[in-house]
Design a binder for these strands. Structure first.
Lengths: 362, 362
DNA sequence: GTCGCGAAGTGTTACGTATAACTGACTCCG
DNA sequence: CGGAGTCAGTTATACGTAACACTTCGCGAC
């Protein structure tokens, strides 16, 4: 009585335009080259506009067997790095009419239900960060859903493609910068997360320092929070001889390290230098601003989605024109894209203090 | 040719268990009280487990006309506040088998396509932040989709429910705290965003200051970024007499204000006090730590989703049992939930400097 | 004896879309 | 002039699930 409860269907449009439902389908998806006369096509479009018709996605998905939806598996969006990652995937997805759903908040309560039995959406593919502990589960949960890994060792997964950030190069730049300034005693405030990217940070730091003939870095593992960064840095700075630079696995840890230094009466960067990773907005909010490795998270997300679209054979997506290599993708080895990173030198690094031994109290 | 390309259907399960497809449907959704014998029910479950059967969400949605999916409209997840909001909605949604999709990144390029024609998902309802400029568009885009507004003036929308944070109370607490400390000249670093929550901040600040008999606050509008906060605060601190406290509309602006103060050679909080809003992780990463109003963003998101589920009549959701009030929802006025906020007093506020600009105040 | 009734199922249909298969009519040439 | 080929459409069907309507059977009550 009040209003039409249900949305108009293609059949309603057909009736209004005086054509068959099939014609509506053809017209509205621009497949009517020599199938429908221009006049009727226009009538269909007018009727659709008039009725406010929108194709029912569920029906379309059922018919086509594809959902134009990808799953993004990340630890938590409250970490700005992953929010940027998501923004990249969502942007590229939207450009191709795709949607992105997130893995149900892993930190949340609930019985860790896998995303595939969630009633919400069926999936065409998965993009997973190696930092999400659920990534392997997601991989195993479904038979053969195309998978793109982010920041993962290519050999270890059966991903169709991998998008990595050149973390090793970033760490080498950090070490080179600190060595250039004259630092010889480094400490590593390391993420206590079992993930490839952090393995690479640790390994590369150790190698670079060894290559320079310095003592191996003092390592303090820490959860990825400001508070735990402070705790770990307090430990590191209590060592004797005290390290002159704290290399942190991400900007949150670096912020915590700065707090620790100041709590001990040390100035940053005059008494101790601090570096981070990620270049979050936090990095330029701090004082001094953080010297950090800028990771193109948004671009990584975008590249991941482009890779997934390429695997799915979506036209207009990404690499090499796309026409030729279509069809069977299972053959070749996983393609690896590595995105360059850059060191942003700011105020939190400076030459080590002149006084060699121990400036101690002040 | 190699493996079964398509996932098993309920009919496959039926064949494997030696029953009809209808029985499978009944058993797997626990609707078989007196319809299927326990033995066959167990056989069905075993077969489903064996085959790795998962119901096709598209088919289910098509049949039921509901998708168990809600749209969350927010400006950008890279702002931690909205990431927390999202976490809350996603958590509650997952608890009820719902999914959350995000409005396609508004800051992204592309022709600002409305989410409803996106092929990805059909929606059961919408949760929109008043800070998203697209909220009205989302509201209008669809005929009658249940809408829950976050931080919005109830009268202005036709939302089925509204969840607000008690911003006015938070601002009153800020002003009371600063007045208690002895501040009399406040400046407002205001968000230049046309949104109800920021209107409330400005109005409440002006009222509270007037009630205390002080001069009206100096207002500097600013985009919601650290850099723009610095710019606005530099302007505010150039005034004569200089304000002794900067009341900022959010923590990013407050961080920018701290940078501005220090750039002018002023210490925080000895020379100038700074307050923020939100209590982002940034607030405790800064030095001094930020005095700010803690907004329960995660809880607001959760409350919004609960409200939406209640409107949708999802059993087990939120208010008043839900059985009685089902059916027509259009009748009553929009229900408004207001969540309390709390001032977190930290290191960025202190009494104003002793040296008065001019005699008389004390 | 048969009527009614609950248990235990099965057959069938509809949801809205995309597309293969079909149908006339008209055009073009040999 | 007749058949091949195109144009402009329509009809019919399948996708996988949920749910209504129906059947069969055993059994206790009248």
């Amino acid at each position: 009585m009040t209003t039409d409860r249900s949305r108009p269907t293609s059949r309603d449009v057909a009736r209004a335009a005086g054509v068959s439902q099939a014609a509506v389908s053809l017209v509205l998806r621009d497949k009517w080259r020599g199938r429908v006369s221009p006049g009727k096509a226009e009538a269909v479009r007018a009727a659709a506009r008039e009725l406010g018709y929108r194709p029912n996605p569920a029906a379309r998905s059922l018919r086509l067997g594809r959902t134009r939806t990808a799953l993004l598996v990340v630890p938590a969006l409250t970490n700005e790095f992953f929010a940027r990652l998501h923004a990249g995937t969502a942007r590229v997805a939207a450009e191709h009419g795709f949607g992105v759903v997130l893995y149900p908040s892993p930190e949340g309560i609930g019985p860790a239900r896998d995303p595939f039995d969630s009633a919400s959406a069926a999936l065409d593919g998965v993009i997973a960060s190696s930092m999400a502990s659920e990534a392997p589960a997601a991989l195993r949960a479904d038979g053969d859903l195309p998978l793109v890994m982010l920041d993962s060792e290519p050999e270890r997964t059966q991903a169709a493609a991998t998008v990595n950030l050149d973390i090793a190069d970033g760490m080498r730049q950090v070490v080179a910068h600190l060595l250039d300034l004259g630092h010889r005693r480094l400490a590593h405030i390391a993420a206590a997360v079992d993930s490839w990217t952090f393995e690479v940070r640790a390994r590369t730091l150790a190698e670079a320092v060894r290559a320079a003939g310095c003592a191996p870095p003092l390592t303090r593992p820490s959860a990825l929070t400001v508070a735990d960064g402070t705790r770990a840095a307090l430990e590191a700075l209590a060592a004797d001889p005290r390290p002159t630079a704290l290399v942190c696995d991400d900007d949150l840890l670096a912020a915590g390290a700065c707090k620790a230094a100041r709590r001990l009466g040390l100035r940053v960067p005059e008494d101790v230098s601090v570096t981070g990773f990620d270049d979050l907005s936090l990095a330029t909010a701090l004082e001094p601003e953080l010297t950090t490795v800028r990771l193109p998270a948004e671009e990584a997300g975008a590249a991941g989605m482009r890779a997934l679209l390429a695997v799915l054979g979506v036209e207009g997506a990404g690499d090499r024109g796309g026409v030729g290599t279509g069809g069977d993708v299972s053959g070749g080895p996983a393609e690896v894209t590595t995105l360059p990173v850059a060191l942003a030198v700011r105020g939190s690094t400076a030459p080590p203090p002149r006084t060699p031994a121990r400036p101690g109290g002040r």
